[in-house]
Write a protein that binds this DNA or RNA. Structure first.
Lengths: 139, 139
DNA sequence: CTTGAAGCTCTAGTCGCTATAGATTGTAGA
DNA sequence: TCTACAATCTATAGCGACTAGAGCTTCAAG
């Protein structure tokens, strides 16, 4: 009927110190305690932690998750904010992808310019890291 | 002939507190000081800071940069290590890209499932964040 | 010589955890 | 019931790579 912090961790994949951290940060309510002062959680806590885990895996910062959790406590409101948060996060992920792709192509150029068999003095890798001029674009 | 910390910052795009931080961390040597205790840099420092900036922009962690800088001080050695560092970094970037692409498709699905015009109680965004079961794969 | 920009040091804060230490509690087997 | 050992507790510090702020001093142009 109720779970220890270890049960919560196993069920959600969130590590134990992280669960305590979420409690300290107010994402999870402080649960009831056993006689010996150990945390005892219920189903609702488990669901909430699962929500947090999934959102974190999707890259949402804790502030965004906090907002979504607040929202979900007001089922009568419009979900404009939830929609905005999801779209902002999507835009951020897309931007990160396009940035990383630029880096990928540049790193690939740098890495293949050297087979590791010669001396540092002539190494095109070290030259390339030092000299932005060879890069295709800005970064 | 020599530069203030502000000159260094303008020339490389590295912010002033960050330059001092790099010095504290040993990536930059402590430069000579003016009579009034202000930092005075030379061309070599400028080049070195430019190297660090470029490498950071490419996503290399400070530890890797430290290694490359050490390497460049031994021009007689083989550049095996430089090659390895570049390839490791490339692999890391590629992995991050593929991870982000998974997140992108999932977030896109979540974001388009809601136009923001209805009530939170029925919001598929909040449901989707709470339920991993709808996702295509692991993450 | 004055004034305002630029520099100095030091501390603390950011984000999202993770690690460690040392003490206490819960639980299963003998 | 006793014992052993796993699990949990609190509190603190560390990670990476900066960033911000306070309160002071120095530099350089007019």
């Amino acid at each position: 009927m109720d779970f220890s912090i270890g049960d919560m961790s196993r069920q959600t994949g969130v590590k134990i110190p992280t669960i305590r951290y979420y409690e300290k940060e107010g994402l999870l309510a402080a649960p009831v305690r056993s006689e010996g002062n150990q945390r005892r959680y219920g189903e609702a806590d488990l669901d909430r932690l699962g929500f947090i885990k999934h959102a974190r895996d999707l890259g949402l910062p804790m502030a965004a998750i906090r907002k979504l959790l607040e929202l979900s406590e007001h089922p009568d409101r419009l979900c404009t904010d939830a929609n905005r948060i999801a779209n902002e996060q999507l835009a951020a992920v897309r931007q990160r992808i396009s940035h990383l792709k630029k880096l990928e192509s540049e790193l690939a150029r740098i890495a293949t310019s050297c087979d590791g068999s010669h001396q540092v003095a002539d190494c095109s890798i070290l030259k390339a890291f030092g000299d932005h001029g060879q890069c295709a674009g800005e970064h």
